[in-house]
């Protein structure tokens, strides 16, 4: 019945188990989901992140002049669920270990991630496009002997034509060979 006395005395003896946090660095677990960051070089503008975002924190708006799009991620609406990171096909979004979120009200509207992602133009017809990152194209065309780097600089329509030409050449070669 008096076990609690033993526990209390033990606790006094063992000393506090408190983190030194405000005065020392706090430990952050390896897989901790903190602030989300975008790597604009990898973004292809597929908008799946905007679609899955629980809090609606992601805003993507194309510029009227067609030069690219503005990508805004509001940290003050982000629920840190990590869905965007999970669904991002190119790995452009990642959660960092940064949890130092407290900020004064005056900084409220600066507390976001803003990027301008420019469009490139198609080598064939000049239409605006975002190229897939090389790592991803490498995986997609792993079994095909095509010039993936060239294909990725083409818009989907030109890519179709290019692929069709390629296939016709291949079949001609096969007929003449037999």
């Amino acid at each position: 019945m008096l076990d609690f006395l033993k526990i209390l005395a033990g606790n006094v003896f063992k000393g506090p188990s408190t983190d030194g946090f405000p005065f020392t660095q706090a430990h952050t677990p390896r897989r901790f989901r903190g602030k989300v960051h975008l790597n604009p070089a990898l973004c292809v503008g597929c908008t799946i992140c905007r679609h899955v975002c629980a809090g609606g924190a992601i805003h993507i708006a194309e510029r009227p002049d067609g030069s690219g799009y503005d990508y805004t991620l509001w940290h003050n609406t982000c629920a840190l669920c990590g869905l965007c990171q999970h669904y991002c096909p190119t790995g452009a979004l990642s959660t960092s270990g940064d949890w130092h979120n407290a900020h004064p009200q005056s900084e409220k509207y600066q507390w976001c991630e803003r990027h301008f992602v420019p469009f490139l133009s198609c080598d064939g017809c000049g239409a605006p496009l975002r190229p897939l990152p090389p790592a991803l194209t490498g995986r997609i065309y792993a079994d095909n002997h095509v010039d993936a780097a060239r294909l990725m600089r083409l818009c989907p329509r030109c890519r179709q034509i290019e692929t069709a030409m390629h296939a016709r050449e291949a079949s001609h070669e096969a007929q003449s060979g037999s």
């Binding site: 209390l8 606790n11 006094v12 063992k14 000393g15 506090p16 188990s17 408190t18």
Partner: peptide, 11 residues
Amino acid sequence: RVEARMQRRVG
């Protein structure tokens, strides 16, 4: 302070 110590806090 002592109560905190008994609960393994700094207090």
